[in-house]
Simulated assay, not measured.
Amino acid sequence: MVITVTLNPALDKTLILEDFTPGMVNRALSVRQDIGGKGINVSKVLKEFGVQSVCTGFLGGNLRELFLRELKNKGIDSDFVLIRGNTRTNTKVVDRVRNEFTDINEPGAVIEKDELEEFLGKFEEIVKSGDTVVLSGGASSSVPKDIYRTLTGIAKARGAYVLVDAEGELFEEALKAGPDAVKPNDYELSLLEGKKLETDDDILEAARRLMDKGVGKVMVSLGADGSMYVTKDSAFRAKGLKVDVKSTVGAGDSMVAALVYSRLKGFDDKETLANAQAFGAATVTLEGTQACTPSDIAPYLSQALSKITEV
């Protein structure tokens, strides 16, 4: 079973405008809403590719029933801890004239001590040997910064495979438990290194330092510049694909889904990177945080393979 953890889910509200002007009245051309949060986004993509998963984490407030209903409608299983606080709404502003994308993310609900304890107990119950656990996204300030380290330790002790996609202290703490795979972007990796990573060699060396700390595989997303995938057997660099960008939200989550999907399918490292590139490229061509589908990624797979070199 695949288990995705979303500690700070959000309703993603996307406003499409022309010529967005701060400080003025702006009128949206269209609005869409998608349930989200990084783990939930991963589950949405996996479902489109025939992989069933269970979403867990925290849900609360007047959005709780909306999330549960939407997940059920999509055929995605869920087992959330229901909290007293409110699930947040994140607002995405898309300016079609300037081709600019602005995110305004709310901080999220306070997680009370009893709610955190309930979640840890639930997590210990649902994770089994052979499971794949995805720990991705941020957490509200009320959640301990070592939460992903704790969850990684629990999952690995039960024989599960753990993939982490986080930043800052959450990421740094998770590394201490030796996750099987991680997917930082270049900014998150730079934060960890304490300096800006300027070249591919910088990124490769930083990825290998993570592996020296006990991480099994490292996928580094580089936005429009592509990505790099480093394992004990190989290191590959993929150049970016040129696509018509409609939303930048969720591309990294789709790449995480590609890592899970590729592992379940037994793809080699180069095929895994090509899938990650195709999943990410297809996602940015969709509005809001829609999940990409097999037909969405099909035009990009061969192109992605042709742009991969070993480093």
Score class of each variant (00 low, 15 high):
128 K>Q: 12
252 G>D: 00
291 A>P: 05
118 E>G: 06
164 V>M: 08
46 L>H: 03
232 K>V: 08
198 E>V: 15
153 G>V: 02
141 S>M: 11
269 D>L: 02
26 N>R: 07
103 D>I: 11
150 T>W: 09
27 R>Y: 12
134 V>R: 05
229 Y>A: 05
105 N>T: 09
108 G>H: 01
199 T>H: 09
179 P>N: 10
217 K>M: 13
122 K>C: 11
307 K>N: 13
56 T>F: 04
162 V>Q: 06
123 F>S: 07
126 I>D: 03
204 L>K: 12
289 T>N: 07
133 V>L: 04
129 S>M: 15
107 P>L: 11
269 D>I: 01
293 T>H: 07
71 L>C: 07
184 P>M: 02
59 L>D: 05
309 T>V: 13
15 L>N: 14
244 D>L: 14
120 L>Q: 05
311 V>C: 11
237 R>D: 05
146 D>P: 00
303 Q>E: 14
39 G>V: 08
311 V>S: 09
108 G>S: 07
2 V>T: 09
169 E>S: 13
5 V>G: 02
134 V>Q: 06
98 R>E: 14
31 V>T: 14
190 S>L: 04
219 M>T: 04
266 G>H: 07
41 N>W: 01
180 D>S: 12
243 V>K: 00
60 G>P: 02
235 A>K: 03
48 E>I: 08
149 R>T: 01
270 K>Q: 03
262 S>N: 09
160 A>V: 05
123 F>K: 06
101 F>A: 09
282 A>T: 05
11 L>C: 02
119 F>N: 04
271 E>T: 09
42 V>P: 05
32 R>H: 11
200 D>R: 12
3 I>A: 00
210 L>R: 07
238 A>D: 00
129 S>D: 14
204 L>Y: 06
288 G>S: 09
109 A>I: 07
277 Q>C: 13
201 D>E: 15
61 G>Y: 02
276 A>G: 15
66 L>P: 06
68 L>Y: 00
132 T>K: 09
101 F>D: 08
62 N>F: 13
37 G>S: 11
4 T>H: 04
229 Y>P: 08
80 F>E: 01
66 L>V: 15
308 I>C: 02
235 A>E: 06
117 E>G: 11
57 G>R: 02
52 Q>M: 14
56 T>E: 01
111 I>G: 09
184 P>T: 00
261 Y>H: 08
234 S>L: 04
206 A>I: 07
253 D>W: 04
19 D>T: 08
164 V>T: 12
